[in-house]
């Protein structure tokens, strides 16, 4: 992959002739990490693919306005999270009209997803994580799966380290309580 530092990439964003090239580099560099963040939230591969596409299309629309006030990764991560929340809210509304619970539907979809190979325990863990509110679930995923530092999560989400620690603590308690009942 072409190695270009962040400053150079930001300069390319503002140049109309080089914007497309810069965008390709951006997609190559960040699509994988963003995919996994989104996937842990929406669970299903097809949904993650849709949200990831929307994330990059939105970032393309706003590329010329990006001035480097934050890191590119942080900026992209925020767009991805917003797109994920938008997707989840839409799905929630759609399921409300059918009198079904989105979380139940997502777990059912995960069971039939060919791109999920977890056993019963893994599925129960996902079910337990799905009982958490969206933001708490996000913090839990970032800490539990990605083992991210609280400082990095704080920068990405714009939440204080203390609040994140408390959020993760409560999330773990809830997941444990769910699993002790179910397993």
């Amino acid at each position: 992959m072409e190695k270009i530092d962040e400053k150079e990439l930001i300069q390319m964003f503002s140049d109309e002739d080089q914007r497309r090239k810069a965008f390709s580099i951006l997609v190559k560099q960040y699509s994988e990490s963003l995919y996994w963040q989104i996937r842990k939230m929406v669970l299903c591969h097809d949904d993650a693919n849709d949200v990831l596409q929307n994330t990059f299309l939105k970032s393309w629309d706003n590329l010329s306005q990006f001035r480097g006030e934050s890191k590119i990764s942080t900026w992209l991560f925020r767009i991805a999270i917003n797109e994920t929340y938008t997707f989840l809210n839409k799905e929630r509304q759609r399921n409300q009209s059918n009198f079904t619970d989105l979380e139940d539907v997502m777990i059912q979809n995960l069971q039939s997803d060919p791109w999920f190979s977890g056993d019963e325990v893994a599925l129960k863990l996902q079910e337990a994580i799905m009982t958490l509110p969206d933001k708490q679930r996000l913090v839990f995923n970032m800490k539990y799966y990605n083992d991210m530092k609280y400082e990095d999560i704080s920068e990405a989400l714009g939440t204080s380290v203390g609040a994140l620690k408390a959020s993760y603590h409560y999330a773990v308690k809830k997941v444990e309580a769910f699993l002790s009942l179910e397993l």
Partner: peptide
Amino acid sequence: RNKMPFIEPGDRTVFKMPKNYFKDF
């Protein structure tokens, strides 16, 4: 996280994706 021994932190093995997904993406 050690209180939950089911899945190790950072374990993504339960989630798969199509071959060459990122290239196709």
